[in-house]
Amino acid sequence: MTELLQQLINGLSLGAIYALIALGYTMVYGVLRFINFAHSDVFMVGAYAGYFLGPKLGAGSIGGGVLTLAGAMAVCAVLGVVIEKLAYRPLRGRSNLTVLITAIGVSLLLQNTGQKIKAVGANPRAFQFPGPDGMTRGLFPETQLHFRSLTISSNQVIVLVVAVVLLAALWWIVHRTRIGTAMRAMSFNATASSLVGINNDAVISFTFALGSALAGAGGVLYAMNYPSIDPLMGTLPGLKAFVAAVLGGIGNLPGAALGGLLIGLVETLVSGTRVSTYRDAIAFAILILILMFRPAGLLGKLRVEKV
């Protein structure tokens, strides 16, 4: 029982990270109807941004950790907007496939450029920071909290808190601000939204900034809990987060969050069993099952093609 509870907590904190990444996929899909394959590499860049910003912004304290997190989010937001401007915007109106392939190109570019930059390199780096005493330490101060026989690391709590705060902020932006309303309008009907005076390009840029910032936060949190980073680290979490987005119903924000949590939970639970080596296949098996039986995802609405 304790074992199960422990796994649930681990799963939740992993799932929260997937949820943050999944939101970026789902938001971009909502406004542009395409899979931004480079999103998983924005996540990777987020982790590296945290790695390089950490020492300058005072990693190791709560304030420094929060600053680093915010810094990484800002870096990713800018990166997201730049990618959209340079690679995707010129393709507006072209077939989905063209954009998808371009996205794959951007993804490969980020991964391979990362490997060739000296400061990044192809080898994994520990996501830890030098402390004043010469010892290394994590991004945030770390302790273990004990409740009876349950052990929760402070990092897991931080992941959950950050995720909840960011989700709340996102909800507020999408439902309570002008730009958020414009995003929702555009995801219903992009042509109509431009006709009523919404600047679709601005909305798209904003969506990329928002989604990429969340991926950046996800990258830092992921790196913090699995304290090792490398240029290819984004691929697998990225794919799983995408699966989470589809599972929840692509284009649907609460769906992406729910999907992320579910994938994280299932994956953690499977890790604790005999078939743990199949962990990475589980997400895809779930995806295939979901698409067979509920192609619109858990919370999504099926778009029926009008005949």
Partner: peptide, 18 residues
């Protein structure tokens, strides 16, 4: 479209893991 792409992608990954 995209859904089929992602299911086939998922299938490829499953094969690899198996």
């Amino acid at each position: 479209g995209d859904y089929l792409a992602i299911v086939t992608l998922g299938f490829g990954e499953i094969i690899k893991v198996i």
